[in-house]
Amino acid sequence: MVISTLGVMIFYQYEISSGKVETSSKVEPSVELSLADNNETVSWGAQVRYGIQVRSPVDGNSKYGEIDPKQVFLSVSFFPNATDSSDITHQKEKTRLANQSGLTLMGQGSCFSCHADENSITGPSFTEIASSYSNGKRNKQDLINSIRKGSEGEWGSMTMPANSEYSEEEAAKMVAYIISQGSCEHCWVYLGLEGVLKIITAPKNIETGLYLLTASYTSSNEERGKDTMVLKVE
């Protein structure tokens, strides 16, 4: 009973706010990243609980369950020995974060039901896929084909279903993202409106560093909003 009552309530919320939808179409969603401890300095190996609140003029408010968590990402990069946030705003990082169309495409489908950045869910992780590319076992076209046509027996006994709704070009964007994310040693991507960010244990000969956190959401009319935060690790 609770379920259906809640469902009705939320649908009603949509109905009364739908007037806004018509008038404000090309406005970026507002994305707010917050950390449970509110600290700007964290220790090596720490587990940092984060939450992302999204308000989109088109899609609604995460507070009311109106935001698809599969379109909410926390991209994380670690910069060893950096001490000043100006050290990390260089062009390469900007380009990396801008090239996330592959990630957005993946959020639109069912990819994240089976795949994640580093963990195993059902299918291989981005890291595993990227290493099969870098060691020459698979080329980009193989990976594009796996997405569009599916595969069987390539990674253990699991079947990868065909995702024919993606064009060749879209699949190529996704592959580019997976390879770049999976092969980057100090980059991580987390999915959803909240979770636990895991700070690495201190690497050899490194005493300090900065974490750049970028929370982002792409709305259904393809407007992207983001919020960034820098954490010092010591």
Binding site: V2, I3, L6, G7, V8, I10, F11, Y14, S34, L35, A36, N38, G51, I52, Q53, G60, S62, K63, Y64, G65, E66, L193, E194
Partner: peptide, 18 residues
């Protein structure tokens, strides 16, 4: 929303307020 309502989105699924 329609999908969520059918699945029962669960009150605790709402993002937390720090």
């Amino acid at each position: 929303i329609k999908k969520s309502s059918l699945a029962g989105i669960g009150l605790s699924a709402m993002p937390f307020d720090m």
